[in-house]
Design a protein around this nucleic acid. Structure first.
Lengths: 332, 332
DNA sequence: CCTCCTTGCGCAACCGGTTGCTCACATTAT
DNA sequence: ATAATGTGAGCAACCGGTTGCGCAAGGAGG
């Protein structure tokens, strides 16, 4: 059987409570005794049982990370693996563990009700308020990629990024800029679209409906969208895609159609993930700082856990433009 | 405060132990009493505290999933996000949770020693035996993508897949087939190479050293490898890449060099993930059944958890070839 | 020298469940 | 009618920690 504080207590000849105090550093205890107990604990290879501690202290030293099922599968197109990893990296530094869950199978409600975690981080662009609100009354909650009033959230500057990308294309003389997305119903994509619109309007241009295409929420959304776009009588000279996946699909479709990127059509994506450098030509893309988002979310949650003052905040991280070749800026 | 079995006991007028037995279904109890207690528990919205239960039963209803740091970041190039998700989907059906961890920060040893999980699944092609062996004496362990004697593991048929890919290219008349990998030190890539060699030898061909290129363990490994390959005086007519990432890099490099895929050089990848359909031309690739691997690993672990008979097994999943356009089989 | 305060530690309750054992009572066999 | 058997439920210990409270010893101050 593994060693417990009772074993240590017996060996040292003190009570378990003294051992507990010696190891936790709380409560009054003589330095000499503290050292003696620490040494024995060390020798015996004592490791506290977190279940017991959690039961006594009503805390678990674990945080839940929940990914919305809409953002699954967690495959090569997924945005959230990196964030999950960044969260794990950050919280593990502080002795916390990560319980990973999706929104399927009702694993989440169980996870919360069973008091398995001290707090939760939700990943997704469209977390339902009616799901999160009741949970947030029991547990600290941080949202990534979505905002709900009164809750702490960490988001990228989607509107700003949309403007940046569009302005970049405008500054190169493009006037027919298509906007390609899976769907405008998604708040993130909608925000990127808003940025696109703002940039156009500031240049005295209007959003032209025929240049907005949606591929729908499906795995071949990129193909569908580009087919729609390529069927138009007049092609745009540039495409701003709401994410890298659609941008890559655009490049593929254009290449397949015998068009050259960026010479015939310039393409700018959004996310700036690993995909951006996997395609030819390398993709110019609005950078979403995923690692920072994860770190930041973890940091916020740990802060909420340590201090009960519930000041919710919205952290907006900047989204600069990473310029590569697909926009026609740099020579190939 | 949340409702406990003591609350229920008081309300019904029985002892807590009776409530426990009524809800767990274990032990002798009259059907009438069982129903009464169940109803009250239902009405009160009772949810068991897993910490307390875990403490008493010495189980946690949680499994750990550990990803080797070599396979990080968990970005668009990562193979393991899908497997993680598949594991979660499977174990959550059986009431288990997933504690996610990497091999950094020593979160894993803590996770084990603190008795946070009932079992572990390791994800990675090169998990060190000296790390896993001691853990496996305390906890059931399942390996994915790697084998260690005496331990249960789930792997894809890398050798078979390597043969399949190579034979496919051979059957189309290719005789100069390059093998491109990040490194041959990785057991998985080595196995795929072995399949490649076997296929060549069965056709009376020998492995030619100048056709084997490694890009190293780095994020631009694909670029490095292809630069090496393209510097050769004589180019191969086909490339078998040890994974999709390298295959996509090969297509990119070839396209950039003005060569056409598959007309000038055919390319076959390995993994058959989402990347395969994101590039142009769509990639012919050996399919690695990641979802099945995850499900299978989860199943094995749950089995080990339920029955203490420690029969370790190695499950090898078939890796069929998914034919698309990059190998020149199908017209574009 | 006595009082008061501080210090160091143990006692025991508690967190919320599980489970072996005991015992009263009902049922059936002898 | 009595003994053997079975049934339903409670008691109390236990899992492995934490923590409020009390008490004894020692030092400081009057």
């Amino acid at each position: 059987m593994r060693v417990t504080i009772h074993d240590i207590a017996k060996l040292v000849g003190v009570s378990p409570s003294t051992v507990s105090r010696a190891l936790s550093g709380k409560g009054r205890i003589s330095p000499a005794m503290r050292e003696r107990i620490r040494k024995v604990a060390e020798e015996l290879g004592y490791q506290p049982n977190m279940l017991a501690r959690g039961l006594a202290t009503r805390s678990t030293c674990a945080v839940g990370v929940v990914i919305h099922e809409r953002h699954l599968p967690l495959d090569e197109r997924s945005f959230y693996g990196v964030i999950l990893e960044a969260i794990e990296a950050e919280v593990s530094k502080h002795g916390y563990h990560v319980v990973f869950s999706t929104l399927r199978n009702h694993a989440l409600p169980r996870c919360v009700r069973e008091r398995r975690v001290d707090g939760l981080i939700f990943l997704g662009t469209d977390i339902k308020e009616e799901l999160v609100r009741p949970i947030s009354t029991e547990l600290p909650v941080v949202l990534v990629d979505h905002c709900i009033p009164g809750l702490t959230s960490v988001v990228g500057d989607n509107v700003g990024g949309g403007r940046l990308a569009t302005e970049h294309l405008l500054s190169h003389g493009h006037r027919n800029i298509a906007f390609v997305a899976e769907t405008l119903e998604d708040p993130s994509f909608r925000a990127r679209f808003d940025g696109y619109r703002q940039a156009l309007e500031e240049h005295g241009l209007r959003v032209r409906k025929e240049l907005i295409v949606e591929g729908g929420r499906r795995s071949d959304s990129d193909r569908i969208a580009m087919e729609k776009l390529l069927r138009k009588k007049k092609l745009p000279t540039a495409i701003f895609a709401a994410n890298d996946f659609m941008a890559v699909g655009a490049i593929r479709a254009l290449t397949k159609a015998g068009l050259r990127v960026p010479d015939d059509v310039a393409v700018v994506g959004f996310d700036d993930g690993a995909l951006a450098t996997l395609v030819h030509p390398p993709l110019t893309s609005v950078h979403v700082p995923r690692v920072e988002m994860g770190k930041s979310a973890a940091f916020c949650l740990l802060e909420l856990l340590s201090s009960p003052k519930k000041v919710s905040q919205v952290i907006v991280l900047p989204t600069p433009l990473t310029i590569r070749e697909s926009c026609g800026c740099r020579g190939v």
